[in-house]
Amino acid sequence: MATTTEKPIIEAQNLSREYARGPEHVNALSNVSFHVMPGEMTAIVGPSGAGKSTLLHLIGCMDLPTSGSLHIDGVDTAGLKDRQLTRLRRDSVGFVFQQFGLIPTLNVLENVLMPTLFSGRQEAARALQLLEQVGLAHRAKHRPHELSGGEMQRTAIARALINSPRILLADEPTGNLDSASGAEVLQLFKSLNSKGLTVVLVTHNESAAATASRRMTIADGQLVADIRQ
């Protein structure tokens, strides 16, 4: 799918992230280099504590590397201020979490529109269209607690897409779902990816990893395998 003439949408060079845990230092990620082309669907797998979430947070500009360089959507993230990182996060990436992160007092439609509170854009029509796309148009006025896990996650996906990002990041999106809803969510990722969205998902689930076109394996903070399937 990726052609050599295109520029990578994610470009990581020797990415490292150290945490200070008391007196000792933990190398959550050390010297990871890779790039992701637009339209790829990548699964990041690996044992617990390997550094998968750490990597995803770096890609999502939620955190900064201790060393190494990272380009997102053509922007060098080195030395960016909080404000600029926020803008990059808002415009270029969408985040999906294991625990959905929906706001309980807002209904489905309002949850989808939540990011526009901070972008100041008017996206009501687009929100309805996204709900249609994730199959939740009939649930627009429901509160999160009235939804099933799969419906909550699909709401979260619609929310992640409201600002039309080019990259969708998901950290164990099926981790809290039964296999049927999990499969539905994966199917949704697949169809979004087929329309050109770049998807990076962290997963423990073998079938989830199998839906991706590429599998990166992280162990002990290092990239140990990178296979295009």
Binding site: M62, T86, R89, F95, I103, M114, L117, F118
Partner: peptide, 16 residues
Amino acid sequence: TRELGVMRAAGAGRGH
């Protein structure tokens, strides 16, 4: 706290 983190991920700045 968690919700505020989600908002930050969704593009909310400190000022927001």
